[in-house]
Amino acid sequence: MPVTVRTFGSAGEAASALSSDRTARYFGGGTLVMRALNEGDVSISSIVRANDVALRRIEAAGPRVTIGAGVTFAKILAERDLAFLHAPARSIGGPAVRNMGTVGGNLFAPNPYGDFTVALLALDATVSVQGGFGARDLPIDEFLQSRERQAGNLVLSVSCPRPASSDAFRYRKITRIRPKGASVITLAAHVPMSGGRVLGARLALGSMAPMPIRARAAERALEGRPLDTSTITAAASAITEGTSPVDDALGSAWYRREIIGVHLRRLLSDQE
């Protein structure tokens, strides 16, 4: 069924169009929206696009990086200053999907997708959102909690601090197929060290709940401790707390709970 497509030159105009029409859907890279249209999803009757260069901007020189919502994973991989985000960007789709899919769309991607969002959650990212009432910044976990209600808003950009060292941020995606495959589970850890102890631990998990979640009990097990075997074991035994994985074609809930601790241990102790 044909849909109405409206393309705007500025993000602001697109945001007003979205907030004034509840049935409109924003079209980012389109890898999920076009898929729904091809399937004949009748809930989409109109599409809003924005051709605004601001949405494709990357500011990566400083200690805090800002990435426009319309930036593709291929563009992140081409940016040397974003090396810490290359592992999550490379883990998404094949080359064509990375040329098309965007950071903004990933925030809304349902399981088994949303891998980049898992990385952003572990980095305490901020999501900049423009609604009918102007723009505001939300912590990413708050954004994810209210994701359903964000549908009428336009995400402008995400920003996050650059990890202090390459060791401080780690990412791991478990798939059945290599090199490309959907996530069985995804893990991201931000473990900044101060005086030999973890300070400000963040662990984020994908495919362990309806959307990416923080593993707070395991974070507490890491906080203030050296990253040694006994700390890592304590974190691994707390990692399933608060999770609610499901059975799907990629793995059962039981399997996901069984393997997540193993992969957390490997991630934190630098094992393949």
Binding site: V5, T7, F27, G30, T31, M34, R35, N38, I47, R49, A74, P95, A96, V97, N99, M100
Partner: peptide, 13 residues
């Protein structure tokens, strides 16, 4: 010059 999937590309883009 970039690889894209035609089935997921909105023609007007």
């Amino acid at each position: 010059g970039e690889l894209h999937l035609a089935c997921l590309t909105l023609a007007e883009t």
